[in-house]
């Protein structure tokens, strides 16, 4: 609790100044106040093993040759040894019609997730600044309205939004395609816009909480010196808000990367746009017994979230806790 990462407002957790002292005392009396007996440790170990085993089994299997996966359980790896990187090579690089060709989808996942993280981040930061530091009539009411939008499940917007995209965006995309044939008619644009819209209520709320905590004197001083709102926003607010921006960015990136619903509806499902999750869902539907492909394919899609998770765990936990009500 006492690390230097900034605190996003995590609902329900009281953060008090006494935390650190409590922790020091906790260490001193640790042995005494330990609830953990031997049974507790065993139960904890059992839970930990149960929680890890399914992933572990899939991971082991992804390195086993197809013949072995489909005839022997992964727990018999020592009786039936076999190791291959062929599964990964096949799902990622093989160009044959029947293979998953995940390379293209991996690029799509990245191409969707990066802009779909940056767009809402910037737009929300601007709105949050306006709510926090520009006084105007109705500011409170408007902010509450945006806050309230968080409870609208995105299912409620999907059908009309798709209709609008088909009517309004499609002609523009076709026009671009006719000029630059490399860019497919069905581009990333609808997916980016959908993700941006669905991210905004939460993003504005979280960033507002942080940006409004910036000491007023800092901003007043800059304003008195003649800085415009645009300059204050760019030079002062954004740099100070980096920790909050980072937490939200990580959460949003993972949310988009792991999303299936928005992709299914707005991507069209072709190699041109569809992300990994959509391809995986498709593979489980059509080739649900090709475990040599599914295991490797699943891990291709898991590798990015796991890297983010293990390298940025702190920020990730905060972003996730703060954003867990999204969607």
């Amino acid at each position: 609790m006492s690390d230097n990462v900034v605190d996003l407002p995590v609902p329900g957790i009281k953060t008090s100044k006494t935390d650190t002292t409590a922790e020091v005392m906790g260490k001193a009396t640790r042995v005494k106040r330990r609830l953990t007996s031997r049974t507790a440790t065993v139960v904890a170990l059992v839970i930990a093993v149960l929680w890890t085993l399914p992933t572990f089994g899939l991971f082991i299997s992804s390195f086993r040759p197809a013949g072995l996966i489909s005839t022997t359980g992964w727990w018999t790896i020592f009786q039936n040894p076999g190791f291959t990187l062929g599964n990964y090579q096949e799902v990622l690089f093989s160009t044959s019609q029947s293979s998953p060709q995940l390379g293209a989808y991996f690029v799509n996942s990245l191409a969707i997730a990066i802009p779909a993280t940056l767009f809402p981040l910037v737009i929300a930061a601007m709105a949050a600044y306006a709510f926090a530091w520009i006084k105007f009539k109705g500011s409170g009411a408007l902010f509450v309205l945006i806050f309230a939008l968080q409870i609208v499940p995105l299912q409620l917007a999907l059908i009309p939004l798709l209709q609008m995209f088909t009517q309004l965006l499609r002609p523009g995309q076709e026009w671009v395609h006719s000029i630059i044939p490399m860019i497919p008619e069905q581009g990333y644009l609808p997916v980016w816009i959908a993700h941006t819209i669905f991210a905004l209520p939460l993003a504005i709320f979280l960033l507002h909480n942080f940006i409004s905590e910036i000491p007023g004197e800092v901003i007043e001083a800059a304003r008195v010196d003649g800085a415009s709102h645009g300059q204050v926003f760019f030079r002062i607010v954004l740099p100070l808000a980096v920790p909050a921006l980072a937490s939200f960015a990580i959460f949003q990136f993972l949310w988009v990367w792991n999303d299936l619903l928005v992709a299914l509806i707005f991507s069209g499902g072709t190699q041109d746009v569809a992300p990994l999750t959509q391809r995986l869902a498709e593979l489980t539907g059509t080739r649900g017994q090709d475990w040599q492909r599914l295991t490797a394919a699943a891990f291709v899609s898991l590798v990015v979230p796991l890297i983010v998770f293990f390298s940025l765990q702190r920020y990730f936990v905060r972003g996730l806790l703060a954003g867990s009500t999204k969607g």
């Binding site: 399914p54 299936l260 899609s301």
Partner: peptide, 15 residues
């Protein structure tokens, strides 16, 4: 498991 996608989790458990 919180970090990985529901789709990935689905495949893990289907197995």
């Amino acid at each position: 498991p919180m970090a990985i996608s529901f789709v990935g989790a689905g495949i893990i458990w289907r197995f």
